[in-house]
Amino acid sequence: MLPQYALSQLLEALFAVVVAPLALGWVNQCRAWLQNRRGPGVTQPYRVIAKLFRKEVVLAHQASFLFRAVPYVVFGCMVLATGIVPMLATALPFAPAADVIALVGLLALARIFMALAAMDTGTAFGSLGARREMLVAALAEPALLMVFFMPSLIARSTSLTTIVETLAHQRVAVHPSLAFAAVAFVMVMLAENARIPVDNPGTHLELTMIHEATILEYSGRHLALIEWAHALKLLVYATIGIALFLPWGIAEAGHWAGLPTAVLALVAKLLVGGAALAVTETVSAKLRIFRAPEFLATAFLMAVLGMLTHLLLEGTA
């Protein structure tokens, strides 16, 4: 029993690590199509990562051991996060080690290391990026937690597998609060993955950078790991969204037969979700940096309101 589960855990993490750049490539390709460009093809992120791995690392004189360790730590956190989020099956032996709060903590750990690394080289843009990244985090992270708390209240559990099992396999029940959660989650996801209304993943214009500014000094294998971790983060968020709001089709614990369906369902959902992300990014304009806190505060308050709605409409009394 146990080795079987461990295998499924390992397979799922590997699946995520392998698929993540593809998902990013799909979003980029969709954006290119929407902008009437041909686009680089969905496999471009793999080529970028492979190229970066082969390149030499150029370190700033000022960089300390922290700077060199951070890419590995960030990558490790992201891989671990994929181990907690149920993507294909809810049978995850690692899941009891960390619930949704710990998942948010892991993502925060990665981000704080990223911000510290950005400050480590002592450049103007590095510290600017660190400050902005932490600002976005300071508002997005509570919003994300509040989003998680709504399904937690519904499922009476903060364990992600329990939540998904409750939501996916229950009788038909409508949870109005999840509508609020979904809106808030989309806003947080855009902010946390440096997507357009808050940040622009394609920009190298100095004054508008947030995430890009924190990784300016990275090169070679370090940059490859960070880019890969970034793709993983997008995948983690996408699968969290799928698990919370569109959980149907996921394989139950011990049901190996459900796995092919689960894979197909996941791929279909990711394709649609990626396209939707690309559309969102294409139709919206980047916000001024000080509109971003307003955007995130809106997400945060939406989530608070959702929780309130839950207590009032779906209360136990």
Binding site: L59, A60, H61, Y72, F75, G76, L80, G220
Partner: peptide
């Protein structure tokens, strides 16, 4: 254990699979 496991696995993989060349230079900073 999870973080350390992944970090060491990745580190070893990168070390075995690729070169570990590193050069020091002034920071780029755009």
């Amino acid at each position: 254990a999870g973080i350390l496991g992944v970090v060491s696995a990745v580190f070893l993989y990168v070390r075995v699979r690729y070169h570990m060349r590193t050069r020091r230079a002034p920071p780029w900073d755009c």
